[in-house]
Design a protein around this nucleic acid. Structure first.
Lengths: 223, 223
DNA sequence: AATGGAAACAATGCATACATTAATGTATTT
DNA sequence: AAATACATTAATGTATGCATTGTTTCCATT
């Protein structure tokens, strides 16, 4: 699934930095120079630089000429953009899967992920829930098989990750969202393309509305 | 529109290589080592390498450990993937523009591009036609305003460029396609979201079918 | 005290040097 | 002749050095 490890060092730098950004160890707006990062990672500037270029291409950081690398904050407009794309792509992919039909074995990862969401929800394990949610969406795209779409959507997920984690704790338990996943899975099982599309679209629309609402209500400047 | 010029050399290398790939000066399957490319561009390996990393992230080349940089060929499956994404993204964007309404001034670039297509078609200027077609799609996304979608779609266009140019000369004049553009523009003008969506979707579906048909009929291994 | 400018500083862009390692060719053995 | 092992070559991965250039600091002037 990941061929990210071009080489030990640059691959390591890439993974580590991405991890630190996702986990908010390098929070939005965080700034550091290349030598600082290189020092922290225990390598020279060269592999760090190559990793940074990739991260910049994925929209996670930006390299500002003399001011260092900056972790780009995600604002409401950004989430709007991201959800617009997801709303266009995912329901389409899901519907195609439904139309062409999928064996129970193929659907197993989705079933597992859905169960994991339901379980995590029952346990009040928000982080577990978020992870299962991610897995569901990722596995769905994997099942669909469009590599480019996978890469693209994964990049969007990565960008949105922090905002999703933060807002997850600002609202009631994601009961509705979990039910919607179950529903989507059922529509796929039924081979109902139209229904799958509609369900997924509704899922995304509601999620976007909720999230954007929170971002605006709480005046969150950038996550 | 382009912020690609990180610096003189790496920006130059990036543009030049991209140009050479688009124009088939470096044809699909073409292979070269970093020193060779650096020599050809008259700079050291460092800026070349940074440009290559970006081009790889955009899916135009791949860097194979000891065998050099390779221009990735586009095969039928790739075009399938690309068109799937475009079919999901562009009609959605166009429909949103239609729904929210656009002034005649905002639509001017689209009108110009459409006229240019019609003109080029009348002159039998296929390259001019292709360029105007590109402009139409690019301007549409620009009008919509979703930066991420712009970047993504642009990358897909870049990947598909060669195949489009080649197949353009394997079929009759793109009369139908030109008419469809005119139709889409009219639906946007009319503020008809549904109609816009349907028209654009049909446009993409037909284009995809035609192109994939050609690729398969002619057994083109990779463009 | 505030403003303007010059000098020191520091980060980046690029070049180059070096180490590692895979591919190729050669020689030796069977 | 074929195959294996070894040596050579060459490309990549990484480190380092250097020049350029933007930023900041500090001082002088108003």
């Amino acid at each position: 699934m990941k061929q990210a490890a071009k080489s030990k060092l640059v691959g390591g730098a890439y993974e580590r930095l991405k991890h630190d950004i996702r986990m908010n160890l390098m929070p939005p707006g965080f700034q550091a120079t290349e030598p600082e990062i290189a020092l922290r990672l225990g390598m020279s500037r060269t592999p760090v630089r190559e990793a940074l270029i990739r991260l910049e291409a994925e929209g996670l950081i930006e390299m500002i000429p003399r001011r260092g690398v900056r972790v780009v904050p995600i604002r409401a407009e950004d989430m709007q953009e991201i959800y617009e794309m997801l709303t266009a792509l995912e329901p389409e992919a899901a519907a195609q899967i439904a139309r062409r039909g999928a064996s129970e074995a193929e659907l197993a990862p989705l079933e597992d992920a859905t169960r994991a969401m339901e379980g995590a929800l029952a346990d009040g394990d928000l982080d577990g829930w978020a992870q299962a949610d991610d897995t569901f969406h990722t596995e769905l795209l994997a099942l669909h098989g469009n590599r480019r779409m996978m890469t693209c959507v994964q990049a969007l997920f990565d960008q949105a990750h922090r905002a999703r984690i933060v807002t997850l704790r600002m609202r009631a338990l994601p009961l509705r969202s979990t039910q919607e996943h179950r529903m989507i899975l059922e529509r796929i099982r039924a081979g109902d393309g139209e229904g799958t599309y509609a369900a997924f679209r509704a899922h995304r629309a509601r999620a976007a509305e909720e999230l954007l609402g929170l971002l605006q209500d709480y005046r969150l400047p950038g996550l």
